[in-house]
Computed example of a mutant assay.
Amino acid sequence: MAVAVTSDSGKIGIIAGGGQFPLLFIEAARAAGRQVYVVAHRSETDQVVAEAADRSCWVKLGQLGKIISFFREHGVQETVFLGTITKTRIFRDVLPDLKGLTLWNKIDSRQDDAILRAVAAELEREQITVLESTLFLKHLLFPKGVLTRKKPNHGQRRDIEFGWRHARAIGELDIGQCVVVRDCSVMAVEAIEGTDATILRGGALAKEQAVVVKLRKPGQDFRFDLPATGVGTIDTMRQVQAAVLAVEAGQSLLFDRDRMIAAADAAGIIVVGVEERPDGSLDY
């Protein structure tokens, strides 16, 4: 659901994880005339992201009170969640402050969406509105259609449809966003380890010709944790001789499109953006 920009202060906050998304957002926000205030996570966020901001502060995972204090100090009333957090860190690197610990103890489920929704709700109770992560960057949404020179054959289309149903099912359970299949058999299901590890595990079992299907979770909030792919995804697939990457069009992010497609073509990997019609059939 779209969230309208409500502030006229010209300031916007970023709660930043790893990857290039925060830096791309800073550039786009500046072009839109916004001042950018970054909360950077230690061991996750690139130093260049913090340096590119008008102001920044570094936090450890769980320091919610510090985030709120930083935004209050600088009059920031809007923020976005951008970038990746290594999910396994919740078992070893969390150092919550009192605010973070209080919230953590209230969360019944430690799944992605439950945690992020709880943090967003707490921010909004503090009059800090959480906006869509694609604000200023709609052009990064994955397009529909075959992006590479090669197209999926009949068997690969069957695998995409098979994988789509299973990826949708694990998404409904808030387990993950990606499955790896071959010959209508599930090779791997994404959980806390992330997409790249899932591709390596599933691709090793498939031996070759694996089909990777990555979808947005049903009802997923556009404010955070959208599926994302890029050159790194293709590099991982190449290591296990995977054949096809099928991604939900308009519901996920595509970084470095030209480089990604060139890498896929060089590796003979098919990349396709897929839409689900109202009747459940797939269109690409």
Rank of each mutant, 00 (worst) to 15 (best):
residue 183 D to L: 00
residue 251 Q to H: 14
residue 30 R to C: 03
residue 100 G to W: 07
residue 59 V to F: 01
residue 167 A to C: 06
residue 147 L to G: 02
residue 180 V to C: 02
residue 252 S to W: 07
residue 232 G to L: 03
residue 141 L to F: 10
residue 43 S to Y: 15
residue 154 H to D: 14
residue 112 D to S: 12
residue 236 T to V: 08
residue 223 R to Y: 00
residue 67 I to Q: 13
residue 264 A to G: 00
residue 230 G to H: 02
residue 42 R to A: 02
residue 93 D to F: 07
residue 235 D to Q: 12
residue 162 F to G: 04
residue 162 F to C: 03
residue 115 I to N: 05
residue 100 G to I: 08
residue 111 Q to W: 01
residue 264 A to T: 02
residue 215 L to K: 09
residue 83 G to L: 08
residue 204 A to Q: 12
residue 217 K to V: 06
residue 206 A to F: 06
residue 107 I to N: 10
residue 11 K to P: 04
residue 155 G to P: 04
residue 187 M to E: 15
residue 133 S to F: 00
residue 15 I to K: 02
residue 187 M to D: 09
residue 280 G to K: 08
residue 23 L to I: 05
residue 26 I to K: 05
residue 282 L to P: 13
residue 265 D to K: 04
residue 54 D to F: 06
residue 89 R to Q: 15
residue 164 W to L: 05
residue 57 C to P: 10
residue 112 D to P: 12
residue 56 S to A: 13
residue 159 D to L: 09
residue 147 L to Y: 10
residue 268 G to L: 11
residue 153 N to Y: 04
residue 82 L to D: 04
residue 79 T to W: 15
residue 182 R to N: 15
residue 50 A to M: 08
residue 270 I to P: 09
residue 35 Q to E: 14
residue 124 E to S: 01
residue 56 S to R: 07
residue 176 G to I: 09
residue 85 I to R: 05
residue 267 A to M: 05
residue 169 A to I: 00
residue 71 F to H: 02
residue 9 S to Q: 00
residue 256 D to R: 11
residue 147 L to H: 09
residue 78 E to G: 03
residue 108 D to K: 12
residue 246 A to F: 11
residue 47 Q to E: 15
residue 155 G to L: 11
residue 72 R to L: 05
residue 237 M to P: 00
residue 82 L to V: 13
residue 79 T to N: 03
residue 24 L to R: 11
residue 34 R to N: 09
residue 195 T to E: 13
residue 24 L to G: 13
residue 264 A to I: 07
residue 160 I to W: 03
residue 172 E to H: 10
residue 112 D to H: 13
residue 232 G to C: 02
residue 124 E to Y: 06
residue 157 R to F: 11
residue 57 C to A: 11
residue 266 A to G: 14
residue 234 I to M: 08
residue 252 S to R: 03
residue 2 A to K: 12
residue 238 R to Y: 06
residue 25 F to R: 05
residue 6 T to N: 08
residue 35 Q to F: 07
residue 232 G to Y: 01
residue 12 I to Q: 01
residue 24 L to C: 04
residue 29 A to W: 02
residue 207 K to V: 07
residue 276 E to I: 05
residue 250 G to Q: 03
residue 271 V to G: 06
residue 104 W to Q: 09
residue 10 G to F: 04
residue 264 A to D: 01
residue 274 V to M: 10
residue 259 R to G: 14
residue 133 S to E: 15
residue 194 G to A: 01
residue 166 H to I: 15
residue 102 T to H: 07
residue 217 K to D: 02
residue 213 V to P: 09
residue 187 M to Y: 06
residue 97 D to W: 01
residue 10 G to L: 05
residue 234 I to P: 05
residue 222 F to V: 11
residue 168 R to S: 15
residue 196 D to M: 11
residue 253 L to G: 01
residue 120 A to M: 09
residue 236 T to Y: 00
residue 88 T to N: 12
residue 155 G to S: 09
residue 96 P to E: 05
